[in-house]
Design a binder for these strands. Structure first.
Lengths: 261, 261
DNA sequence: TCGTTTGTGCTTGAATGTGCTCATTATATT
DNA sequence: AATATAATGAGCACATTCAAGCACAAACGA
């Protein structure tokens, strides 16, 4: 039996049972386990299955996303990476402003229960943090936008004009070198703009898909940011511009960084 | 079964019941509880579920989790009666202010999905109403008091000074003819006082146990109320005083009432 | 024939997955 | 508020599986 025949056979067997053992394959195909492992490695590189310890499984078996998780949020894992990076910037005693958004919500979830003051305009973030003992929570008020569960408007901005925080963690839908940071809704853009005014450091959290996107309402220019946390380095063009404007860019993989911006 | 298969299975089971026990998972997946805990830890890190003591819950579930205050509520049934009475006073198009508290939370839950504007300083009420399509929600901002999940303080009152509503539904801990309406916390009392200023009609929702009680911080005099909704008629002394001051008293059993006060 | 390439199997140290124990912490009970 | 009960996390031990390097053999072209 040729190697390619064997690989086809492996895929056939796998599709029947959804998961399969290296040892079983070795027995039934009458080759050593080493050979099977090499085959599985090839097949995984071709994206045809997912290896596990002791065997392999189909992608349907491996991926939780499609039907399982309610929100078909494809970037859930990346957002968690970004959230971890962001949380790493937080120090005990800090006063933070968390904008509404899924990434900042993840941040709130993994925020350590240390002495902190958190300001937010996001209802779910508020609910999440309301149970924490060592976190002092200040909600911004205002009208609720139901799509984003964010509070916006004049009342919100009225409070923002009266506070000052150490770090603002901002979400956005698009980042473009020329058009700046943008979002679809103008009321939210206005609120986000007010948020930027309240913070010494403005940190944008955005996955790589946001680079190059442009949406209706402009929030600010790229130069108004102190730091961008993302999951994948943007193109050299973006990077050099960020460097020129002294904006720190933090992808999740690296470890040590300076904490200025 | 491989670890990844097992994790997929965990998510599948979790999505069916919204919450799940470590012990049940260990039994049905035939591994030790230690292993299940490790799986849950991984899944939590990926942002796919929220761990609790003894198991895990979905994020949707997490925001519904009843607060401590609500659990230990002996008068739940009475409060539901009061809430029904209160909701009966609401008309389409009304602008309402809902104070924080378990009775007003019940109100929010049974509020018909008609054209309404609701202002509230309660985080759980906000969460409850955020899903309603025909209700425009305005959150008051401010610092969160963790016992009551109410927003209080200067920022809250700043917004209150800028709004006006048709009806204020107020909660309190004590009602006494001489000492007035009282609550244990002075910050909340101050906020409630500001609420009273914003409304044409001030409706107090309070079960019968509150009559005669006096707490630390005074909110207002009895005469400042337009209406009291309760579950059991108070003593003749109270009733005659209320009548004298033209305050409507509404126990739940009766049906027809005039809607002035 | 030789040297090279390709496929396969073996060996070994390292990595991974799992379950157990026990001190600590969270929750429930009184 | 104090105690009892249960759940957790950290560390350890054990078994299994893996990756990488080496060895061997068959296939192939010169």
């Amino acid at each position: 039996m040729f190697a390619d025949e064997r690989k086809t056979q492996i895929l056939f067997l796998l599709n029947q049972s959804q998961s399969i053992l290296v040892s079983d394959l070795a027995t039934s195909l009458d080759v050593s386990e080493t050979t099977i492992r090499r085959d599985l490695q090839d097949l995984e590189e071709q994206g045809l299955l997912k290896r596990t310890h002791g065997g392999a499984i189909t992608f349907q078996m491996a991926s939780f996303e499609p039907s399982m998780v309610e929100k078909a949020d494809f970037y859930a894992e990346q957002k968690m990476q970004i959230a971890k990076q962001a949380v790493a910037m937080v120090k005990t005693g800090d006063t933070l402003l968390l904008d509404s958004g899924t990434t900042t919500l993840q941040m709130a979830r993994i925020l350590p229960d240390q002495n902190l003051t958190i300001v937010t305009n996001s209802l779910p973030i508020g609910t999440e943090l309301s149970r924490r003992k060592n976190i002092k929570l200040v909600m911004l008020g205002g009208e609720l936008r139901s799509n984003t569960e964010a509070l916006v408007g004049a009342y919100c901005e009225m409070i923002l004009q009266n506070i000052h925080v150490d770090k603002v963690f901002l979400g956005a839908n698009g980042i473009d070198l020329f058009k700046g940071v943008t979002t679809p809704n103008s009321a939210e853009a206005s609120t986000k703009r007010a948020m930027i005014q309240t913070g010494r450091q403005v940190i944008l959290v955005a996955d790589h898909s946001k680079f190059g996107q442009i949406h209706f309402a402009k929030i600010c220019d790229v130069k108004d940011l102190s730091c961008i946390i993302t999951d994948e380095l943007p193109s050299a063009e973006y990077l050099s511009e960020f460097t020129k404007q002294n904006i720190a860019v933090k992808p999740p993989l690296s470890d040590a960084w300076e904490e200025d911006g």
